[in-house]
Design a protein around this nucleic acid. Sequence first.
DNA 1: AGGAAAATGAAATTCATTTTCAATTAGAAT
DNA 2: ATTCTAATTGAAAATGAATTTCATTTTCCT
Lengths: 180, 180
Amino acid sequence: MNFIFLDRPSPLSLTCIMGNRGKHKTACPPKISEKKEQLKAFLRRKGFKSTRQRDIIVTEFLKTGEHITAEDLYRKINRKNREIGFTTVYRTLKLLTKSGFATERLFADNLTRYEPLSAEDHHDHLICLSCGSIMEFENLKMERLQEKIAGEFGFCIITHKMEFYGYCSECRDKCPRHDD
Amino acid sequence: MNFIFLDRPSPLSLTCIMGNRGKHKTACPPKISEKKEQLKAFLRRKGFKSTRQRDIIVTEFLKTGEHITAEDLYRKINRKNREIGFTTVYRTLKLLTKSGFATERLFADNLTRYEPLSAEDHHDHLICLSCGSIMEFENLKMERLQEKIAGEFGFCIITHKMEFYGYCSECRDKCPRHDD
DNA sequence: AGGAAAATGAAATTCATTTTCAATTAGAAT
DNA sequence: ATTCTAATTGAAAATGAATTTCATTTTCCT
């Protein structure tokens, strides 16, 4: 087994991630076609080929937006395109990841999820243990504090992961707190 | 290439936890026998049984301290006790987890690691992508900030996960930063 | 001791992820 | 346009960690 890690994402232009109950995150319309152009350029540069399958997969991935598993994306695509196989979806997500257009995230449910990546995107996650919704947040103070802590250890951060598991405002009543 | 492939450190080096420069964490001698007493009491209360295997596994686990995979703990134990099977080690770690004596953690290498849990333990991790060492830190400011952010979302935190991936002070020179 | 319930451990199973391999396709070179 | 080569595809197989099964053994209550 190998441990794959991305270098800093290549400096691509913005993206945007859908809102999360409209509280902290600004929703801006994703420029899918622009991203696809960039990807195409990247592929050319690297000697990879543009294929119909990749185009469909990438489009669907960017449209979907976030936190999707290879399996789920495959199912989604497979409804319209019966001939595209899981392996290709999987490999495309890996390719996007390697080329800096997406990130892989492993949440506590042990499923790898992918999401489109943009350069400034440094958000963290709130994951509801009841309804499973994943909300995002970004907090500058947090980022600074992280840098500061890392600095105290002489540690050079490449990436980080921060997740809160608990109950969202809509599921608060289901929060057990004391069970056995 | 703008990404890095790291070989996963051998199981042994992975479990080696470096000190944390004495800045954030207080090292206190674990009261193994005391913990074992508590566990025994717990088992009795729940109608579970105390067995030789559990005793050995728990002792070894507590002695080891932290961040160990079921596989690694099994190998460690198996050296001296050829008759204890992997399954039992695995199940014991699960039991410890369910009963609150341990926690499971899933880091980005997709291996479940276990560590003894004590009530006050709320630490986070710095994981070196080069040598695989896992350092711990605790930061009160961070905890407060986390609560604050969660509060803003009306989110009730049950647990959280915070990990920095990067290069420790001893591996800084191996940090690629700019390669292609 | 006797007996019921729990524990054990080897082997089998599960399931997401990753790789293999033969067939197909993209795109550069001719 | 045709040819050629390397990349891509997708079904199937492999991998590997986590989990379950099941026959046997052990604990511990009476």
